[in-house]
Design a protein around this nucleic acid. Sequence first.
DNA 1: TTTAAACTACCAACTAGTAGGAAGATAAAA
DNA 2: TTTTATCTTCCTACTAGTTGGTAGTTTAAA
Lengths: 196, 196
Amino acid sequence: MSNLSTTSDDILASTRNLLISGGYNGFSYADISEIVGIRKASIHHHFPSKVDLVRELVKRYREDGQASVAVLEQKVPNALDILKAYANHWAACIEDSSRPYCVCAMLASELPSLPTEVATEVTNFFRFISSWLALVMERGSKQGELSLTSAPHVEAETFLATVYGAMLSARAYGKPEVFSMILEPALNRLTPTVSH
Amino acid sequence: MSNLSTTSDDILASTRNLLISGGYNGFSYADISEIVGIRKASIHHHFPSKVDLVRELVKRYREDGQASVAVLEQKVPNALDILKAYANHWAACIEDSSRPYCVCAMLASELPSLPTEVATEVTNFFRFISSWLALVMERGSKQGELSLTSAPHVEAETFLATVYGAMLSARAYGKPEVFSMILEPALNRLTPTVSH
DNA sequence: TTTAAACTACCAACTAGTAGGAAGATAAAA
DNA sequence: TTTTATCTTCCTACTAGTTGGTAGTTTAAA
C-alpha cells in the first residue's frame, strides 16, 4: 500500500471542499491547517499566497476537466449521450453530496471581487466548457444525433446555463432531485424525434 | 426637495451592492461605514449584528419582489408578456450594470456556510419566485398564451434555472449580452405557434 | 426630559503572511 | 566512505491589519 497523496494535494483537496461551501472569502489558511493537520505556516511553503493556492486549484480543475472530456469523447460517440453523461456526472455529485457544486460556479458569482489572476482562470474555465459544448452541439446536429432550434453556440450556452442554474436551484431548495427534474426535459428537447 | 432616504436605507443599499459583488464574507461593517459616511459602531445601532443586517436585506428583497410581481400581474395580462418582462428586467439590470446580479443568487451559492437565519430567508425567496412562475405557467398554458412541453412547475423551475444560469454566464464571461442571447430562444420555445 | 442616532475608544479573535530554525533526505566532493 | 552542502518540509513565534461587536458618551430633535 503506497502513499500516493502528497501534502500539496491534500491542501488542494481541502481548499476545494471549503471553496465549494463558502467561496473565496469563506475560508482561511487556519481552516485548511486544521483539516490537513499541518500548521498554517507550512501551507505557505506549498502555496506562498492565497491567490497562488486558488489560482493553482482552478487551473488544475480546468485541466482535469479537459482530461475527463477527452476520455468521454473517446468512450461515447453519440453527442446526445455525451450531454447526458455530462448531466449525469453533476446529478451524481449533487445527489451523493460528494462535490455538490462547481468550484467555478462558486467563484464566477464572486468574480467582481476576486483577485484578477483567479478571475482570469475562472473565465478560462467557462470558455473551455462553452466551446467544448458548442463543438458537441455542432457535431451532433450534423450527424442527426441532436435536434437544435438555434445555432450550436447558442444551444451550448443555453445548455450550460441550464446545468448551472439547476445546480443553484438544487442548492437553494436543499433538494438534490431538482437538478434532474430540470435536466431531463432539457435533454428531451435536444433528442431527435424518430422518423418512420 | 425632501430627503426621503434614511440612514438605515443607505446602509441596506450599500450592503446590497457589496453583497452583489462579493457575497456574505466579501464585505465588512468597515466597508459600509466608508460608503455611507458614518462610523462602524453607528451601523450596529441600526443593525445589531451582520446576521440582522443581511436577514433584513433579504426579507425586504423578497417583499419588494412580491410587490413588483403584483404590479406586473396587474399591468400585463398575457403570461408570455409577463415572462418577457421578467427577463427584460434582468437583462436591463445586467446591461446597465446597475444591479448586475441577484442578491439571492449570490447568497444561494454560499448557502451551506451561511448563518441559518439568512439561509432560511434565501430559500424562502426562491420558493416565492418558483411558485409565482409556476402559477404564470399554468395560467398561460390554460389560456393558450404559453406552449408548455412539461408540467407547469417543471417549466417554472426550468425557466428560473435558465434565468439564473444566464446571469452567471454573463458574469463569468464579462459579457452582459450573453443573458439575452440565452433568454431569447428560451422565450421563443414557450411562444405558441400561430395556427391558421 | 426623554429618546434616537451618532460618536470615541475600545476589545478579543482572526486574517494573510513573514522570519528563522530544526529535521531529514539527497547528492556531490573529499 | 565520509564529509559537506543543498533542498524539502515542517515547525514555533511573530506581525500588522481586519473582523464583528461592545461600553459609554455626546448631540440634537420631540
